[in-house]
Structures are given as structure tokens and as C-alpha cells.
């Protein structure tokens, strides 16, 4: 995986794991790879992986079981919540960017609509 050097690595690791959870690569209750293995897979520092996992444990998206490793939470509500949160984050980014281009809310809505329609046509 390629990292953006401008963004804190632990944050990118979290996003990577969220992504895995959203796409279902990591289902509820699935065991995460060992910390060092994750570090090797992602070519990052073990400490940074630990920090990312620590934050995820605190927010409840993964659970740590002593001596067994880390597992994706079984709490599906928490995962749905996470998904909402991620969607909002993305939307917020797009909204802010477009807003910065002096688009009104109406204009943003219509341009998004046209964009989605056009993409749909391209895919046909």
C-alpha cells in the first residue's frame, strides 16, 4: 500500500483497516493480522500500527483479546456507525471543496446529480 507522506501514517493505517472492514475483507469477528505482520504488509513501523490499533480499540471498532490478538467488533451497529461516519467525512470534503468554488448548495446538488447520471451512462 502506498502512503501519502503528508498525512500521519497511523491515520492512514486506520483508514486502510476501515476500508477492509467496509468492503468485507475483514468481516465482523474476524481476526486481524498480528501487529508485526501488518507492519511488514504495509511497510510501516510496528509502533505506528500499534498506535492505530490502540485508537481503534478505544473507539470500539476492533476488540483486543488478551493473548489471542485483535478482532473486528461483532457489534454491527458500531460498524454501521463507522460507515456513516466515513461517508460523512468524504461528503464533507467534497462539500467544502465545492463550496470553496463559490457553488451554492443548490448548484452542488445539481452538479452532483449530473455527475452521477453521466457516470452511469459511461458504465452502460
Amino acid at each position: 500500500m502506498k502512503f501519502d507522506d503528508k498525512v500521519p501514517i497511523y491515520y492512514q493505517i486506520k483508514n486502510y483497516l476501515y476500508h477492509e472492514m467496509m468492503t468485507g475483507t475483514l468481516g465482523p469477528g474476524d481476526k486481524l493480522p498480528a501487529v508485526r505482520q501488518l507492519a511488514v504488509d504495509l511497510t510501516v513501523n510496528v509502533n505506528t500500527v500499534q498506535r492505530a490499533l490502540g485508537e481503534m480499540i478505544t473507539e470500539g471498532t476492533i476488540e483486543s483479546q488478551r493473548g489471542k490478538g485483535n478482532f473486528v467488533t461483532m457489534d454491527t451497529n458500531r460498524i454501521t456507525q463507522l460507515k456513516e461516519q466515513l461517508v460523512i467525512e468524504q461528503l464533507e470534503r467534497v462539500y467544502n471543496e465545492l463550496h470553496a468554488l463559490n457553488l451554492t448548495d443548490e448548484q452542488i446538488l445539481t452538479s452532483l446529480q449530473t455527475y452521477i447520471e453521466r457516470r452511469g451512462q459511461q458504465h452502460d
Binding site: F3, D5, I9, L42, T43, V44, N45
Partner: peptide, 8 residues
């Protein structure tokens, strides 16, 4: 740049 991701 190559080692940046592994540095604490």
C-alpha cells in the same frame, strides 16, 4: 521518502 513511513 522511501523510509519515511517506517520512521518514528
Amino acid at each position: 521518502s522511501e523510509i519515511a513511513p517506517i520512521l518514528d
